[in-house]
């Protein structure tokens, strides 16, 4: 039965792709993560704006998140239809390059300004956010003012964090603590452990617990309060500004070697760093723009925490040490 179905489906697939390709002369296939293309995500607006100028059609393929994006590429290998991959973060850059699927972008990125000064010949940043502890002002009057205060503070004031083995924010906090504490990171985690209510597999579970009131703090982004202020008009949830500085997450896009029309792909990357795309990002992806926007950011963004110091480790350093640091984290967090 299955044997009969596979060639049948393959035939349908061939026919439909052939058909959709002929309907528009040029198609740009963009691989991205799911929240980019969801109803409120930037996907639709971005496609509309770019299609006006390029005489082409954007086709999105979306997977769960940035890490899954890389996995998907590895699974697809050379047969991938991706022209553009949008949604990896700086921690994945070194691994993504190692796959050999990406080509140098060759565009002018002088307009792009990200804290921490990331620049790369293969990947172009399109937005960024600093990791931050978000707290509930109704449950917590005195939020920690530094990572040190978070680590050493009252163990009854709990925080929900994400697991660095399975999630990007979890890995972000791991690198943050490492940047601040260095060799003492293990000891810091052992101390922070008492304050950690639980470690969730991903951001959604952690944020869900937080908004349900289970813990007064959660690890998220400095931009999270902007969502609550803009979409829910409440300033109940605020980011705690840490005096040591904040670790940054920079999201990047790149062109694949197998891109069908490299010139078109390049145009798209240039568009990504341009004012139109950058204006769409803040209130759809809830991240900070990396270049000038067409109109000023909504007022709420002005109220956000802007870290004085930004931590960013090179992705080679992260790739080389991730396993050892996760082991250190596991050892410290598993002690009784």
């Amino acid at each position: 039965m299955r044997k009969a179905i596979i060639p049948f489906l393959a035939a349908i697939a061939a026919v439909t792709t052939a058909f959709s390709a002929s309907a528009h002369d040029k198609v740009l296939t963009v691989y991205t993560y799911e929240s980019f293309t969801s109803e409120w995500g930037p996907g639709a607006k971005v496609a509309e704006a770019f299609e006006k100028t390029c005489g082409c059609k954007i086709s999105y393929v979306s997977v769960a998140d940035g890490v899954e994006l890389l996995t998907r590429l590895k699974l697809e290998g050379a047969s991938s239809k991706a022209d553009i991959v949008l949604g990896l973060d700086t921690n994945l850059v070194s691994e993504a390059k190692a796959t050999g699927f990406f080509a140098p972008h060759g565009i002018d990125t002088s307009a792009v300004k990200v804290p921490g000064g990331f620049s790369d010949d293969t990947f172009v940043p399109y937005d960024y956010g600093h990791f931050a502890v978000i707290y509930d002002t109704q449950a917590m009057k005195k939020p920690p003012k530094s990572l040190k205060e978070l680590v050493e503070g009252d163990a009854n004031q709990k925080i929900v964090i994400e697991d660095p083995r399975t999630s990007t924010p979890g890995l972000g906090l791991l690198l943050w603590v490492k940047s601040v504490y260095g060799d003492q990171a293990g000891a810091a985690w052992a101390k922070l452990k008492d304050r950690v209510l639980t470690v969730t597999p991903g951001w959604s579970e952690a944020y869900g617990l937080f908004t349900k009131g289970e813990a007064p703090m959660v690890l998220s982004y400095t931009t999270s309060p902007a969502y609550h202020m803009v979409a829910e008009s409440t300033d109940r949830y605020q980011a705690a500004s840490f005096s040591e500085g904040h670790y940054i997450q920079i999201e990047v896009a790149g062109i694949t070697k197998s891109a069908k029309d490299p010139a078109l792909a390049k145009d798209f990357l240039t568009f990504v760093t341009g004012p139109e795309f950058q204006s769409i990002i803040p209130t759809t992806n809830w991240m900070m723009p990396v270049a000038a926007t067409k109109e000023p950011l909504p007022e709420a963004f002005g109220k956000l925490v802007t870290p004085e110091k930004t931590f960013l480790m090179s992705s080679d350093e992260v790739a080389a040490n991730r396993k050892a640091w996760i082991d250190e984290w596991l050892a410290a967090m598993s002690k009784n």
Binding site: T166, L197, T198, V199, T200, E205, L330
Partner: peptide, 17 residues
């Protein structure tokens, strides 16, 4: 998901994790 979310920390991890 249940084990990680309610487990309180990585000491509670299963092979599936």
């Amino acid at each position: 998901t249940l084990v990680l979310t309610l487990g309180g920390g990585p000491a509670a991890s299963t092979i599936e994790v």
